[in-house]
Write a protein that binds this DNA or RNA. Sequence first.
DNA 1: ATGAAAGCGCTAACAG
DNA 2: CTGTTAGCGCTTTCAT
Lengths: 330, 330
Amino acid sequence: MTTIKEIAQRAGVGTTTVSRYLNQSPHISEQAKQKIEKAINELDYVPSASAKYLRKQETKQIGVVVSRITNPYFSSLFNKIERILNQFGYEASIMQTYDNPIAERKIIDKLKNQTFDALLMASIEDKDYIKSVLQENGNKIVLVNETINGCEKDSVSVDQYTPVVSGLEYLNKNYGSEIVYITGSNFFENKHGNQRNKAYREFLQKHQYELNQNMIFSNAHNIADGKEIAQKLLVNSSLPNAIFTNSDEVAIGVIAELKSKGIQVPEEVAVMGFDDQPLASYVQVPLTTIQQPINALANNACRLLLNKLQVSNSLMNENLQLSLIIRQSA
Amino acid sequence: MTTIKEIAQRAGVGTTTVSRYLNQSPHISEQAKQKIEKAINELDYVPSASAKYLRKQETKQIGVVVSRITNPYFSSLFNKIERILNQFGYEASIMQTYDNPIAERKIIDKLKNQTFDALLMASIEDKDYIKSVLQENGNKIVLVNETINGCEKDSVSVDQYTPVVSGLEYLNKNYGSEIVYITGSNFFENKHGNQRNKAYREFLQKHQYELNQNMIFSNAHNIADGKEIAQKLLVNSSLPNAIFTNSDEVAIGVIAELKSKGIQVPEEVAVMGFDDQPLASYVQVPLTTIQQPINALANNACRLLLNKLQVSNSLMNENLQLSLIIRQSA
DNA sequence: ATGAAAGCGCTAACAG
DNA sequence: CTGTTAGCGCTTTCAT
């Protein structure tokens, strides 16, 4: 392993000068520069990351926390974030929790142990814990499309309430009042924190529909979960008019299972997705879904983070709005 | 920032003892243990990663290089790799090149600067460069489903030649001899390195079909590329019998464009995917495709890497085989 | 424009 | 079972 010392010796200068060269400090003689460059090339020298980090007490690395990278909403969001952050001299890494609070804690440890200078969290498991971390490290975490009561200033998020109400009203008007509701959270435990769940509750209240536990499904995340829910629905004597899901992937699973049993979508049951993932328009029944403004979300999140880190930037605050995209599934 | 020294002071022991505690060394008195635990909790201490890495000259971090995380083949592969590596005390990070050799070099620098102890490369841009790196750091890189001439022992890969021939023969037999060929590489520059391209060339030769430049498309990677190729095809007076693609995403784009112009798939043009990505069976025309044995690939790659790193493991060498999955698109 | 030297937080001889 | 100390490779004061 080549070190700065060896480069210095070979170039016949001090380590300081090499370090200055590495950090493009201005005051170096052309001569020294040449010799250093030569030595670096000859020895294929790359400065040690950990030595630098230890000394500078910063890494310029940002962790982006998501529940799973296979979810296209998260991977698209990450791509956009990475590109923005790179422009400001930061590097981004995507970290997944697999919806597991223990994995989440390990990632938070990487903030505390200074692997990351800061974290962008697009997914949260243990709100109480994250809240406590936020108390200590308020300027090192930004929540992306996630909220914690009392931490509003650390969060960049789209109002989820209004579009969910619109989606439900759309379903109600066009397909009927029996609407199954699927969430990735736990509907009954998570009574207050979740805007989408709140929207469903209040939609029911407004129309004086009764809350039916059998029409609510929690903890759904992927295609397999969607299939499973559809199977449960299919054992009932009658099908609902519509199904409101929390993610396109879940919707895809629901539709696949329904169609495999000969049920027509949306004629017999309408299904609404969420996110508008890249493949939403290419699946067997193109998805009617609620689109996340991913680019604007990424932009605003990076803007808030850079401000917290006190790096000057000209990022503008973009308007965040979810919109209903009507295709064929509902 | 809390340091080991502060913990030592507060607990009334030396730093060594704290370090021993941190590294679960056996010889510590119960009393010391208690005091250290107390101090750690009170101060919310997490050991600095860079200090540890610098001192130990290893990070237990493995980088997994892919061209893009949004490609489900890569993200599924990464997930499997991550789980395996975790079992052996390593952590994995997914790094994307966006098909850009400069980004690739930056990732290689992270190997040289010791951010990563080793790299698993599922995607390669600059073969000559990677070959030279392999010469210096042969035991720190494993190629996953990529090959470089002369570096066979550093590579774990599925024979791509045979299944491509099978796929082409299948198309030829069922749909006719005019088969468009799409690759993610550059077909005409990359004459020898690519098994899939070689299979196409030899398929043509065997049947004495002529190689038609207009039927070959290079550098295709995603849905948009697929659409674009289909558009080019559509301006011709006659359509080919079939289209052989290099990835399900490209196939999805091709099919979407074709169908939007009223062309029936596979009746008018058959389309074959590649990879068997998770969504392959859920798209508008379920994809006939060639399945990558992702789990086995991940297993064998990790096995080779762990062996190179001299960590004992009981991973068995699994049989690697691509298989043709026939659904509806061809 | 350049160098000597201190020190970032940790681990591992070594000594006891 | 425990502590002292050197040193991993780098940046940064402080001289000159």
